[in-house]
């Protein structure tokens, strides 16, 4: 069986959908990395918290449920910055990375405790599940959420690009990401740009929480954990040093993993991570600065 033959329109739609969601996650991770030089491993737990919020507010009107999801995720994102990142700002990258691991496990443990109060693992976010229904496009069924995911991702990325290039806070954030010391020297307020990046990153995590919960309404403490690991790989492969290369990396790894998944015979999908990681290793060997980092020196040289 040829690989191409197995890729139908449904699969292609899924690939764009997951690529779009992963691109949003990549931007959320890349923005915070830009200003804090911190890879936030706990990004997935922000999404998980949003998913639980959707589950626990299933009885509410959908709009209220989604708004509370965003509110919880942004608040948690800001709290993480205030309580953990800010005191550690001058620590080494290794210390910060290990700390975000610790936060990730802490948040998972907290989620487990809350979840198990009803004696059962997992909660169902039922109210937004209808978005997962299929619509017919030229005789092929594509799930509604695919369009929503691609639309939301495009809208969010365009809006963010406009804010970053057209507004003062955007200019200050880009400057801080490129040379924080000089930006502060010019009067750019460190706490402000960091808060901006953290809030936007939280908004993106909220959007991802909604999109992922539509596809998988069964929420558990490890919700979005695997996705986050895959996105982190994509971001590093794309080039974390630049927002747009990180975004492309996130999109590409989401897109490719759906296609690889479809191409592998069903009984062999367990090999998916191996295939993806093998591709990653090859890319990092050939392009250590990132797949999309054309004409740029390696990320390390700037630090």
């Amino acid at each position: 069986m040829s690989v191409l033959a197995s890729i139908d329109l449904q699969t292609l739609g899924d690939a764009f959908g997951l690529g779009a969601i992963y691109a949003l996650m990549a931007v959320g991770i890349g923005l915070v990395f830009g200003v804090l030089r911190l890879v936030n491993f706990a990004y997935g737990q922000l999404i998980m918290a949003g998913a639980y919020t959707l589950a626990y507010t299933s009885g509410w009107p959908v709009a209220a449920s989604i708004v509370s999801c965003f509110a919880v995720v942004v608040a948690l994102s800001l709290a993480m910055d205030r309580v953990v990142f800010r005191p550690l700002r001058s620590s080494s990258p290794a210390v910060m990375l290990v700390t975000t691991f610790a936060i990730a496990f802490l948040l998972q443990a907290v989620a487990l405790i809350i979840d198990l109060r009803d004696g059962q693992l997992g909660e169902v976010a039922s109210s937004i599940a209808p978005l997962n229904q299929a619509v017919s496009v030229g005789g092929v069924d594509v799930r509604k959420v695919t369009f929503v995911a691609v639309g939301v991702a495009l809208g969010a990325l365009i809006a963010l690009a406009l804010v970053l290039t057209r507004t003062t806070i955007g200019l200050h954030t880009r400057a801080a990401a490129s040379d924080f010391r000089t930006a502060r020297l010019l009067g750019v307020r460190a706490n402000r740009v960091i808060a901006f990046a953290v809030v936007v990153s939280g908004l993106l995590a909220g959007a991802v929480a909604v999109l992922l919960t539509v596809q998988n309404p069964f929420v558990q403490p490890d919700f979005a954990l695997e996705d986050t690991i895959i996105v982190l790989v994509g971001v590093v492969v794309g080039g974390i040093d630049r927002l747009w290369t990180a975004t492309l990396g996130g999109f590409a790894i989401g897109f490719v993993s759906v296609l690889v998944n479809a191409a592998l015979p069903t009984d062999q999908t367990v090999f998916l991570p191996s295939v993806v990681y093998a591709l990653v290793i090859v890319v990092l060997l050939l392009r250590p600065a990132g797949l999309f980092a054309w004409g740029r020196r390696a990320a390390m040289e700037r630090v």
Binding site: T168, H172, S178
Partner: peptide
């Protein structure tokens, strides 16, 4: 205002964007 050693211009930014950064203070 400090004009630092080695100038520290934002090379990827336009001249105007560099000047706009100066307005921050």
């Amino acid at each position: 205002a400090l004009v630092p050693e080695g100038r520290r211009i934002f090379g990827d930014f336009t001249v105007e964007e560099n000047l706009r950064l100066g307005l921050a203070a």
